[in-house]
């Protein structure tokens, strides 16, 4: 069982890459869904838009969870510390949490922008 390793968060880069990776996966999924649906299933994009909404909500929830975990690792409200350039384990852990949280914020913005066209464009044509 490797779960206790979570205590060694200062050694793990997962929080840094999870948000942007989910953003990238969301982009690829929406792109592929749209291409296949419009090519094979016709011009009216109602079901496709629902699908994009579902995928987008899923991505936002997963990024939100990552952001929450990163936020906790950053531990900002404990000491209101946003400088982590020391050589301690705490600095390293909080830096990774801080950077991971900010990358999640960017990923949320990216995911919303990627999905935005589906909110306005109702057909494949």
């Amino acid at each position: 069982m490797s779960w206790p390793k979570i205590l060694d968060r200062h050694q793990s880069l997962w929080f840094l890459i999870t948000g942007p990776t989910l953003w990238a996966l969301h982009f690829c999924t929406v792109y592929a869904m749209t291409a296949i649906y419009c090519e094979k299933l016709g011009d009216e994009a109602g079901p496709l838009r629902l699908g994009i909404l579902g995928v987008t909500l899923g991505a936002l929830v997963l990024i939100g969870i990552t952001a929450w975990l990163s936020w906790r690792q950053w531990d900002y409200t404990d000491d209101w510390d946003y400088e982590h350039d020391g050589l301690t384990v705490e600095d390293r852990r909080e830096f990774i949490g801080h950077a991971g949280f900010l990358l999640c914020v960017v990923s949320v913005i990216g995911v919303i922008y990627v999905a935005l066209p589906a909110a306005f464009v109702g057909s494949c044509v």
């Binding site: 913005i109 935005l116 066209p117």
Partner: peptide, 22 residues
Amino acid sequence: PTVVIACLLSYALAAMPDMRAE
């Protein structure tokens, strides 16, 4: 910038269906 770009993007996207009307 996030809000400004979202507004501009929405403004442009909202016009797309009309511009591509049959």
